[in-house]
């Protein structure tokens, strides 16, 4: 049968391949970013080893082989692409936001709530990742002692000498928010393409996410210990 005979669409609805490419781009950028984030956390986790000797060696390696110079802008590009590709799915108009929120409350369905969480964490990541990038770029290169002092920063003292370690709080929240979005994001991509049984796959991804969060929390603790070991910010390792 000839194609034209069966077309039931108006001219402005003819998409060609655009929708397919956009859908693929959303999934592919998502997978790349999850891979990046998990790799990133494993690299940060190297702070456990030799009080940060491997951490510094990795950082120097990234610089020496131009992986950072290419990798950071490339990652920023992938993030921007992902924001546009995935963002178009999220409810944007006030009307849509209200419908989505009311429906989620009404049906009280687990996966739908998880998705509401994904939308919220996406917004938070937008803010936190920008701040994180700024901090890293303005204090380049990455060094264990430098990072340790940042995490251990006591913050500005309030009345009564009480202070808020804002960097520590920032990293803790960023860790949770980022891993939530990555873990459930990968879950949703795999659900859409249907390669695995989703309940089992969900538990596997939750397991991985918990492990990564533990690595992150442990790394934060290690940074505070390294900072104690080398009390001077410029202290050589």
């Amino acid at each position: 049968m000839e194609l034209a005979k069966n077309l039931q669409k108006t001219l402005n609805k003819s998409y060609g391949k655009t929708d397919l490419y956009v859908d693929l781009a959303e999934s592919i950028t998502g997978i790349i970013l999850v891979g990046f984030l998990w790799m990133h956390m494993l690299f940060v986790g190297t702070i456990y080893i030799n009080n940060g000797a491997l951490f510094n060696a990795l950082s120097e390696g990234l610089d020496k082989y131009y992986l950072a110079q290419i990798g950071i802008p490339a990652t920023v590009l992938v993030i921007l692409l992902h924001i546009f590709m995935a963002g178009r799915r999220a409810p944007m108009r006030l009307r849509d936001l209200r419908i989505a929120w009311r429906l989620s409350k009404m049906i009280n369905h687990y996966d739908t709530w998880v998705w509401v969480g994904q939308v919220i964490t996406a917004l938070l990541i937008g803010i936190f990742a920008s701040m994180h990038l700024w901090t890293i770029m303005t204090t380049w290169p990455i060094e264990a002692v430098k990072s340790a002092h940042r995490v251990a920063e006591p913050g500005v003292a309030f009345w009564g000498g009480f202070s808020i370690p804002y960097y520590l709080i920032f990293y803790a929240i960023f860790l949770l928010v980022g891993e939530y979005h990555a873990g459930f994001g990968l879950y949703r991509i795999l659900v859409k393409w249907g390669w695995f049984e989703r309940h089992k796959m969900g538990w596997v991804l939750k397991g991985i996410t918990v492990i990564i969060i533990c690595i992150g929390v442990g790394a934060l603790y290690m940074f505070t210990q390294v900072a104690k070991m080398y009390p001077h910010a410029g202290g050589a390792l």
């Binding site: 194609l3 069966n6 669409k9 397919l20 369905h109 996966d111 949703r188 659900v191 989703r198």
Partner: peptide, 17 residues
């Protein structure tokens, strides 16, 4: 032509309700 677009197969966000 029928479902290869945002209104069809590529429109699903995967909430699985």
């Amino acid at each position: 032509e029928v479902v290869g677009n945002e209104d069809g197969a590529f429109g699903c966000v995967g909430l699985m309700a």
